[in-house]
Design a protein around this nucleic acid. Structure first.
Lengths: 137, 137
DNA sequence: TTGCGTGCAAAGGTTTTGCATGGCA
DNA sequence: TGCCATGCAAAACCTTTGCACGCAA
């Protein structure tokens, strides 16, 4: 199941994603965007690579964009299990929230509401400081 | 854009959703489930009604179920704008979190991280007290 | 050389749309 | 009666899959 070969396409994809992290993509948009920068890859291959990256934890699903799955690249997959994420609904940027306040939140929700929060799956949406006052997308 | 007629199909759908709130559905699953309880409705009509309910705020999107949009009915759409949601990844139930701790969280994130959280869009995932220890779905 | 990766085209699902007909107000 | 809602089938998408060939190790 794990990838065994580090192919040109995989290299291209990781390179592109790393250069454009913190942005949202659907497979179709990513395919088009990569083509415009000179990368060529069959759409089926892209789907297969994307699925691998999901399984490996490099990608995280994002609020849906009409009709297609949307995702985002995470620079440090392992680290992302230990903190929360803030996502700006205007510019689409992802912020990694690493602070003790969230631990207090977990503790509170656990004690008072009997609920165990899963950090890596939980995303808080809103507007970042750059986008306060701007329109929702 | 707003619905004008309260048709039999719309009545059936709301009736069914109210009777089975706190559960997740894809349009296909809902269609099948309703059919089994004797309701008849064309799939296209169901899609159109679901879209209306989304626009009216009765439905909220949920983590995706392979290949299809998933959603959940909210009993009190207006109230849901003022609190947070906890979603159990095992049983699928939605919990409405109404407590001052979350206000503190908002305040903290705003002051320390310059980020304005949008309550109605933010969902925390995890395991509820009934499901702690059980497998993830 | 071995076996995974890729491209193409076809298949399988989901969601939307056009049009004639039905039904609410 | 005037419009919106509905059903059906077709169309438009998105995603997966089979197969033969290409390529990394």
């Amino acid at each position: 199941m794990a990838k065994k070969y580090y192919t040109r396409h995989r290299k291209d994809l990781l390179e592109y994603l790393q250069a454009h992290a913190d942005l949202d993509y659907t497979v179709a948009k990513l395919h088009k965007a990569m083509k415009e920068e000179g990368y060529t890859m069959g759409i089926a291959t892209l789907y297969r690579q994307i699925n691998s990256l999901f399984k490996e934890g490099y990608l995280t699903p994002i609020q849906r964009d009409d009709g297609a799955e949307q995702f985002q690249y995470l620079k440090n997959p392992r680290e992302c299990f230990v903190h929360y994420h803030l996502k700006c609904k205007v510019c689409g940027r992802l912020y990694h929230l690493d602070c003790t306040f969230m631990e207090d939140l977990e503790e509170h929700v656990k004690k008072e509401h009997g609920f165990l929060i899963d950090r890596s799956d939980s995303m808080l949406y809103g507007r970042c400081s750059d986008c306060v006052g701007k329109e929702d997308k």
